[in-house]
Design a protein around this nucleic acid. Sequence first.
DNA 1: CAATTTTTAATAAATTTTACTAATTAATTT
DNA 2: AAATTAATTAGTAAAATTTATTAAAAATTG
Lengths: 298, 298
Amino acid sequence: MDVSLRQLEVFVAVAKLGHVTNAGEELGMTQAAVSLNLAHLERQLKGNLFDRIGKKLILNDRGRLLLQEAGEVLDRAKIMLERVTSRPGDPAGNLRIGASTTIGNYLLPAVIGRFSRRYRRARIDLVVGNTRQIEEELAVGHLDLGLIEGPAHKSGLVARDWRGDELVIIASPSSPLAAKKKITVKDLARAAWLAREQGSGTREIFERAMQTVGVRPELKFELGHTEAIKQAVIAGMGVACLSKLAVAREVSAGLLAEINHPLNLQRRLQILLRQGSHETPLQQSMLAYLFRPEFLQE
Amino acid sequence: MDVSLRQLEVFVAVAKLGHVTNAGEELGMTQAAVSLNLAHLERQLKGNLFDRIGKKLILNDRGRLLLQEAGEVLDRAKIMLERVTSRPGDPAGNLRIGASTTIGNYLLPAVIGRFSRRYRRARIDLVVGNTRQIEEELAVGHLDLGLIEGPAHKSGLVARDWRGDELVIIASPSSPLAAKKKITVKDLARAAWLAREQGSGTREIFERAMQTVGVRPELKFELGHTEAIKQAVIAGMGVACLSKLAVAREVSAGLLAEINHPLNLQRRLQILLRQGSHETPLQQSMLAYLFRPEFLQE
DNA sequence: CAATTTTTAATAAATTTTACTAATTAATTT
DNA sequence: AAATTAATTAGTAAAATTTATTAAAAATTG
């Protein structure tokens, strides 16, 4: 790539202003420098870009083509510089976040959206996966930040307690369970349950809580996506246990009803970092953001 | 724009290969040069792009951001060079063609389409306007080539005879005129005519031909667009006189019928050039293309 | 309208700046 | 201890820029 951005700037200035001298003024260089720059560029591109008629320079057909193309290159370069040049209080960089399903789908979009608007130079990548995957990717350095449900298992990573998350039991508002004031363990045992597949963090919590009160729930269906479960419950096919975050919209819209229950369905969400990783300004900003009060309250 | 394309290339190579030494090999420069280039770039962007852990360089968050952005800039620059670098037999450049309505809408799309596929480095701009506008723009240098109906008026321009164009009289296939074998001047005088507005080249030819046989046509409607006239004729609102080129598709589809008539409706199309303009390779290629047999026959 | 002045781009020569290489150093890994 | 690697240093070559000059064209003037 012998052609330089500088040369393109010089060319564009001459093409725009029509005079070598004026271009030199605008660019803060002498007329001679501009002239040589131009000659050099024309040699590199193997052909004139201007017709020299008298002392006037007028763009020829190749020059006009270059003017368009060079403009696009320079615009891109300008955007690059703007994005990449850090200023105090406005860190530039790329942050790769891994999150579990519930967090990635229902909690992070709002956080990342607001963060990106605040820090325009930051580029956030979000990967959704299960706890094992996220820990692995974080350890080998493909992720900078992990957000998971429950404690971490892998060494080489540090976990910070982030915020609580409550699971709720949902049913169709028209179901008998929704009408009942007091739900007993026996009611829960009799219900038709819908749940995510084995291995889901949400399901793990639910089953442990049921076990604690001595009940083995009867599973009617296993569904791969939280959204599918919600639709099934709305359709009256059964009840399910999901994060309050995942069902908030449907509950407030009256599509789903939260059921009173005697279980303990509290859990804590964790932030995972690579041990000894230097926290970049961007990472620090994101961590500070995650602990803002509006993202902590449930 | 202090950052150079070369620097970006060096950076991308190091980021991709992970080693200063390897990058140097790929780029044909010494390890020291790569190292200095990188240091220079980091100074210009006011911050590190790699974390130096031992003797390994690993991209940090800013580096990752730059890698994406720099890639885009370099891609654009590569495209620019490909488009702008002329090779023998494949001229690069921008050709601005001005054409009258009929030519611009019904004749040039095919020519320009095939020309662009053949000469990939050429960028063709087409402006449609009336004869006066095209002559003016050509004279002041905003156009390189003009294609008009009938002779030119302006000095400083040279006209070359290009090809013929025949006007035809069209009617709905279901109209009585379409059924008649022999059409007399009297028939034409009685018909309900649809035409473009005053000033259209096509209309001028038609009115002159009618005048020659001593008839003043009765205008039912004036419409601003050729397409609108065709639709109106198809709808049976009257008859019209248009270029054979403009109605070819509809006639062969059976939507319109060409009417036999006793008028002389031949005309010649002209190519206009600026006097004394140096013909660029691209311009020469286009002129040669315009005179290819497949674009000359009607 | 010719002569002069001014303006402009290209070129030349000199100088400064930059980029590069070879050699060396320092640190890390094998 | 040997080998590998990135950074640094010092010297050199290359380049970009500047000042000065030239050549040509436009503008001004008598």
